[in-house]
Design a protein around this nucleic acid. Structure first.
Lengths: 206, 206
DNA sequence: TTCGATTTATTAACACTGTTCATTATATTT
DNA sequence: AAATATAATGAACAGTGTTAATAAATCGAA
């Protein structure tokens, strides 16, 4: 069965080519400029060929989204060295904001666009590999904070939700140019960090 | 100069027709199904005619967005009867969540999509009539809470930002199907309300 | 009222988009 | 070598926003 294996490998390599070309377009020209035809041009295949390797564009975007999560997860690797879970939560929040502001295109795909979730619902039987990992990190830290009586106890999922909501609210309003309606544009980033600090502090006191 | 006046009125009427047709499509078929050609079909004009009355599609979407804010503002009219500003803040938050969950399409346009902001930057000399009104309401309540020493004092804009971030974070993650990754789908709405309560309560205690 | 100018509306077209189908080319198996 | 399975493609469908050139209607002045 070495032939089937090699075939499978070839198939996987072309899938990789397609995803890498997509990512290249994505980071260079932004989300809206990723089109099937442009990807095909870049790898010098016909547009229809992409449909042999991916069901549709949403599936490609889903994989780009997963790559975004890989980046985000990588940026949080150093967290394990922080023993105090509240400090860890704080850095997680800071990292989240920085990631969003530095990679707005990825952030968009990971937390705003519908496309990737469509693929999850239609194909992956509801599995969101990297996304779920990232959320587990958050829940785990909150749980540890609660175990060590550092924050008020309660439903982990609900508290995680509130924390995530603050961070996501800030980033998504920022990258969609809504925050500068409330704060002077050059003070937006500073205020965002202050908001995160405020939230973590109120969590502590409670 | 009665003729010019009448001409202006006719012009305004056709603009209204276009916007009403857009809104009809918008609420019936959703954001993605609003196209210049469909609007034109509905009012029985040619697609190019719309460009005589609006600069581009973004400008039409901007007006739909403003209509969304009118709805939201209307849903907050009863707020003036609540004398305690913290109670008012709480109801504002509840209304915000309910509005977002009940009008996801409008919410999208008002707080997520880029299109309306493009028009604001390019044309309206940076003026966002109804959007700014809605944000003023929030800031005003926060200011009143601070004046009456009901919450910790600080920069009004920054605190408003944190409060807005929680509410927007919850709604936008919910309508983009991200929250059900953290909480069981049938418990999402309940948890959202709990998160809002939690935030207002921690504001109080501080 | 007729002529010229201005405004309004339309047709045709451009340059795209995602996606599908029928056909060709390639590779594998019998 | 012939038959079969796989991979790749060209052409086309049905749509998108937008623009330029053209036709129709309206208006102000002679």
């Amino acid at each position: 069965m070495g032939i089937l294996e090699r075939k499978e490998k070839q198939r996987e390599e072309i899938r990789k080519m397609i995803l890498e070309a997509s990512m290249q377009l994505f980071v260079k020209e932004g989300f809206e400029n990723v089109s099937i035809r442009k990807i095909a041009d870049l790898i010098e295949y016909s547009p229809t060929t992409l449909y042999i390797y991916f069901k549709d564009k949403n599936e490609i975007l889903f994989h780009l989204c997963e790559m975004g999560f890989e980046r985000m997860i990588a940026s949080n690797l150093a967290l394990v060295q922080i023993e105090n879970p509240i400090d860890r939560l704080y850095v997680l929040g800071e990292n989240y904001i920085n990631f969003g502001l530095e990679n707005p295109e990825y952030y968009d795909l990971m937390f705003i666009q519908n496309a990737p979730m469509k693929t999850i619902r239609e194909q992956n039987v509801g599995h969101w590999p990297n996304g779920d990992v990232a959320l587990e990190t958050l829940k785990h830290i909150i749980q540890e904070c609660m175990d060590k009586k550092l924050i008020q106890t309660g439903d982990v999922a609900t508290i995680s939700m509130a924390v995530w909501a603050v961070a996501h609210g800030l980033v998504s309003l920022a990258i969609r140019q809504r925050l500068e309606r409330l704060v002077e544009p050059d003070k937006v980033v500073k205020s965002m960090h202050e908001s995160i600090s405020w939230m973590i502090n109120t969590l502590k006191k409670a």
